[in-house]
């Protein structure tokens, strides 16, 4: 299993006790999603739809690269990988 860090955006930190990062073990991005879904109720509904697809206003990055171009949820994770969850943010005022 790869030890990875998941960066939680501000808007979703209330679901993880306020943490900005979570460490967990997962081989793929998809596995990260299911681990988070098991442990933190409410968070994953905001990232994925009922069919498990990443929502159109959220992007997932592995070490800064968008998973849309690197294999989607099957993107493999190496030891030490950083997975960033980045939702669209509208604020400006």
């Amino acid at each position: 299993m790869s030890k990875v860090t998941v960066r939680i955006p501000t808007a979703l930190r209330s679901f993880v006790g306020g943490a900005d990062e979570i460490g967990l073990e997962a081989e793929t991005v998809g596995r990260v999603i299911s681990v988070l879904a098991d442990r933190h109720r409410g968070l994953i509904e905001r990232v994925c739809d009922a069919e498990g697809r990443v929502r159109p206003f959220v992007n997932l990055f592995v070490d800064g690269k968008n998973i849309k171009t690197s294999g989607g949820l099957d993107t493999p994770l190496a030891d030490g990988a950083v997975v960033s969850i980045v939702p669209a943010v509208a604020g400006g005022r």
């Binding site: 808007a11 943010v89 400006g92």
Partner: peptide
């Protein structure tokens, strides 16, 4: 483009 939310910006 710039956007902000609480302590975070893009």
């Amino acid at each position: 483009h710039g956007s902000i939310f609480r302590f975070e910006g893009q």
